[in-house]
């Protein structure tokens, strides 16, 4: 908090600053809603094309649930740990917060690695983007989610460095709030992916 107060203009402006940061949380929330629409459009495409295998392999034949279940719990746990990071932030404990973020990042990385693994496996089995409408929709939907997670990791690293350098300020606080919101959102998207793509796919 110290850095917050030694600003030349003192308290009044700092309050404005705080409000300004709140403004950015609202904007980010709206962005997340637009991202919902983006995933909604991809889900709609998947739903319309999900039975069009064009004689190629089906999801039921190729999906390997154990890996997917592992990914699901990894991402769920990382969503929880990112929440713990926010809790630590509210208590003002920078170190604890960075460690929880690090745990979240490692879990996120594991998720991405598992996904890459799955994709290479599928391609080995002869299911690529160009195989059929089903696989095009599958790779695009799941891949877009994976890309979001990867971007989140990149962002998380940037934030951990900033936290180390600057501690908890209104600005870093806002950034971590947004990041954790984004991370929870990705977990929610994954739940629907897991249900619609994988569970309904193997039925």
């Amino acid at each position: 908090m110290a850095t917050q107060h030694d600003h030349a203009h003192g308290h009044d402006h700092e309050h404005g600053h705080e409000e300004h940061e709140q403004l950015k949380v609202l904007g980010f929330w709206i962005f997340v809603v637009t991202d919902c629409i983006l995933f909604g459009s991809l889900f709609a495409t998947f739903a319309v094309l999900m039975h069009n295998f064009a004689g190629g392999p089906t999801g039921k034949e190729l999906f390997e649930l154990p890996g997917i279940i592992a990914s699901t719990f990894i991402l769920l746990t990382s969503s929880f740990t990112s929440g713990l990071a926010v809790l630590a932030m509210n208590k003002g404990k920078v170190k604890e917060m960075i460690s929880w973020l690090a745990v979240t990042a490692v879990l996120g990385l594991a998720f991405v690695v598992l996904e890459i693994n799955e994709f290479t496996h599928l391609m080995h089995e002869g299911a690529t983007m160009a195989t059929s409408a089903f696989w095009s929709a599958f790779f695009t939907l799941v891949g877009t989610h994976g890309l979001h997670v990867s971007v989140g990791l990149f962002w998380m690293v940037a934030l951990m460095i900033q936290l180390k350098r600057r501690g908890i300020t209104p600005v870093t606080r806002r950034k971590v709030t947004n990041l954790s919101l984004y991370w929870h959102f990705l977990d929610v998207v994954w739940i629907f992916l897991f249900t619609v793509v994988y569970l309904m796919g193997v039925m």
Binding site: V33, I37, G40, A47
Partner: peptide, 24 residues
């Protein structure tokens, strides 16, 4: 405002998905 945006967004997500399935 965030909740309002979310609710409207979810209505539209639902419309996109259900509408597409219905039309197609």
């Amino acid at each position: 405002y965030n909740v309002q945006t979310l609710v409207l967004g979810l209505v539209i997500v639902f419309t996109i998905i259900a509408g597409s399935i219905w039309i197609m």
